[in-house]
């Protein structure tokens, strides 16, 4: 047998061995329980509203936005998520608002209750309102990764810098970690 022929035969043997090894390595995957697709989400219970969600995301503005759990909202007139600490007047004037982009809409419902709605196009996910609501209110405002925007990076840029370790991968079937 020529040298070349031996080389070829050896290669064929090694190739099929490598093939078998690769396929065999994939087999345990079939048995795994967790093989579902996942997306990034943040746990609002762990979130400390540091504001990195607004700056670290690869998207501008961030894929993280504020959401409102109406079920646990107190509909306060003096909303600590909407107003700065000592507002001069309880109106919709910009100088009294906490939100840097005026992304919260205040609507009169009935005396003395007001509804607060997030205008998602404006929200940058800075969590200033979340901090305010958490401090003095019910905590009905919180931030979430909005999946109509999230590009589902393999390594989430926000998760890398989140000091509270609030980011994790969740199954696609249970995309949001909600409050209330």
């Amino acid at each position: 047998m020529s040298e070349e022929h031996v080389d070829k035969k050896r290669r064929t043997f090694l190739r099929w061995t490598a093939f078998a090894v690769l396929v065999a390595c994939c087999l345990p995957w079939l048995k795994r329980k967790k093989q579902h697709d996942t997306v990034w989400q943040l746990d609002p219970e762990k979130c400390i509203q540091c504001g990195r969600c607004a700056t670290a995301c690869v998207l501008i503005p961030s894929a993280v936005k504020c959401v409102h759990a109406y079920a646990i909202c107190g509909y306060c007139d003096l909303c600590s998520g909407y107003y700065i600490e000592k507002p001069s007047k309880l109106d919709t004037a910009a100088e009294n608002q906490l939100c840097p982009t005026a992304a919260i809409k205040r609507t009169f419902i009935e005396d003395p209750y007001f509804e607060y709605t997030i205008i998602e196009e404006r929200c940058i996910g800075c969590a200033k309102c979340v901090k305010g609501c958490d401090a003095f209110g019910n905590g009905s405002l919180f931030i979430q990764v909005r999946h109509d925007r999230c590009t589902n990076c393999n390594s989430c840029a926000i998760a890398e810098v989140c000091p509270a370790g609030a980011f994790k991968r969740v199954p696609v079937k249970q995309t949001y970690l909600l409050k209330g």
């Binding site: 409102h68 109406y70 009935e110 999230c150």
Partner: peptide
Amino acid sequence: YESPILQQPLPT
């Protein structure tokens, strides 16, 4: 008044 339902957009 009925409070609105929270929108939960799914991955596109």
